[in-house]
């Protein structure tokens, strides 16, 4: 890390904080992926890594290279914009695919759209365990 020797202390501390925060949030999201017990709950956990996890590491990297090279290095912004735009799209597609598959198999925990429409505007399925069929 000899290239970082002449970095001012405050910048090093800030970069370190952002890096650890970002990777920590990504790790928490991945732990959620393991611990939560149904697919629809697990959909929520990778967004921890893609919002503030990615954001922290990208900010840290931007700050680090800007200080090292003595000019604003902003190309990490491209990754940030790209990740913010694409993650919701993939998660939406995946959730809809899962919903479609569950409805095809008549999984009782997943509401049909007409059932939702009839009971409009409030919670449709409550339950701590969405019983999933075990085979894939």
């Amino acid at each position: 890390m000899s290239h970082a020797a002449n970095l001012p202390l405050w910048a090093a501390l800030l970069v370190a904080l952002l890096l650890v925060l970002g990777s920590g949030l990504t790790l928490l999201g991945a732990i959620g992926l393991v611990r939560l017990d149904s697919f629809y709950k697990r959909v929520h956990s990778p967004t921890l890594g893609t919002t503030w996890g990615t954001g922290g590491i990208l900010l840290g990297s931007m700050l680090f290279f800007s200080m090292i090279e003595g000019r604003p290095v902003l190309h990490e912004l491209l990754i940030a914009v790209f990740v913010t735009v694409t993650t919701p799209v993939t998660l939406m597609l995946l959730a809809r695919a899962a919903l479609y598959r569950d409805r095809m198999e008549k999984n009782p925990e997943v509401p049909t759209f007409t059932a939702v429409a009839e009971r409009s505007s409030e919670v449709v399925v409550k339950g701590t365990k969405n019983g999933e069929p075990e085979k894939s």
């Binding site: 149904s38 997943v110 409009s120 505007s121 399925v125 409550k126 339950g127 701590t128 969405n130």
Partner: peptide, 9 residues
């Protein structure tokens, strides 16, 4: 983690 999750219309 036992959270009450559900679908909302």
């Amino acid at each position: 983690p036992q959270v009450v999750s559900g679908f909302v219309a």
